[in-house]
Design a protein around this nucleic acid. Structure first.
Lengths: 152, 152
DNA sequence: ATGAATTATTGGCATATGCCACTATTTTAA
DNA sequence: TTAAAATAGTGGCATATGCCAATAATTCAT
């Protein structure tokens, strides 16, 4: 029956999503702890890594994250020397982001731990189920709430 | 194909969960905005409402939330007069929480908006799919990562 | 009964995220 | 070309969350 003693809460898609995110986040964070990175930071480093010196805006869009929030989140990573930003010579409004050599090293280190967390979770939750969950979550991230409600 | 242009990220259960949470959170927040409450606050008020003057610990457990985090989150709600805490006379270590009259009024107001968000989302995502998603999320919230990996 | 564990919270510090106002650039329309 | 409009970020302020170190109150072992 899970720990949800009380009713209602279990009906709210948003509340359930947040709750599961807290739980899973703690787990991934715990496993990643030896690297000194939080799961969010590891994910961000990875996103920067796979991007080709992506712009702030591109990262924010990919992560469905507010641009200013991304800026804030990037700060500790810049402070710790894992990431650096630089103006795009062609359009100086744009700032591109890249990993420093230490950032690449740290990411490699963290990825090993990430695999442990990822595997452990999928072992418990089910690999198939995890895959369909991710598909559903991807759908949600792609929803366009601005479009007018489907005309009946 | 959703906005995930780059690979990898889509494989991390935790990252996908966070991303979807950001997206859905923004939507519910937007719809709830007229009430002056964030979706997290509405959910918290609701949880307090359905509980029987629940203790901080009970709420934190139900929401799979750190006790201190709950304390922090409760502050603006107390400050705004929606919630109040009081020591349990039987065990004074324990603090119980309840809604104030204004809190109850505000919750009613917010619930109407919540229904709009909830319905709109389920209309777009699918009512069935939302139900199975919530079930999956409930499973995750109930996982016990401390238990040793299943012995082969 | 008493001091040693245990339990329930709070406070301080740090990251995660969002909104809004403001700045810097670039693009567009006259 | 020059001012208005659009684009990309930054900074300030506020909530969301977590960890760890107190603090307060209760329970327990001797």
């Amino acid at each position: 029956m899970s720990q949800t003693t009380l009713p209602g809460l279990a009906l709210c898609n948003n509340a359930m999503l947040r709750r599961a995110t807290r739980k899973l986040g703690q787990f991934y964070d715990d496993v990643l702890a030896p690297s000194g990175l939080k799961a969010t930071q590891q994910g961000l480093l990875y996103q920067i890594h796979v991007g080709n010196e992506p712009t702030m805006g591109a990262i924010a869009a990919a992560l469905v994250m507010d641009l200013s929030a991304l800026g804030h989140t990037l700060k500790p990573l810049i402070r710790d020397g894992y990431v650096e930003t630089f103006a795009d010579p062609a359009d100086r409004r744009i700032r591109r982001v890249r990993l420093t050599p230490q950032g690449r090293t740290k990411l490699e280190e963290a990825l090993k731990l990430w695999q442990v967390a990822q595997q452990r979770f999928e072992e418990m939750f089910g690999k198939e189920q995890a895959a369909s969950l991710r598909a559903a979550l991807d759908e949600i991230a792609a929803l366009n709430f601005d479009a007018p409600p489907a005309a009946t």
